[in-house]
Amino acid sequence: MAMGFSGSNAGIGEIYKKVLYVDVEAGIRKYQELLPEVSENVKPLYETTIKNLELLLSQMQEFGVRK
């Protein structure tokens, strides 16, 4: 961690709003597209990434973050 400079008080909902919803969607799409191209050994890494991004998207939705 921990690098510096500007910050601002915010709750987690506000933090999620700093994450671009479309970026998360695009990330899921990107790794889904790459998944068939990678070896079996690497697939779990991509699958975990997709799963985590999907979780993030659902958490963002819970906090009312939309496109």
Partner: peptide, 11 residues
């Protein structure tokens, strides 16, 4: 660590 965290006003 990547250095330190500082609080600023805006982002």
């Amino acid at each position: 660590s990547n250095g330190e965290i500082e609080k600023g006003k805006n982002f």
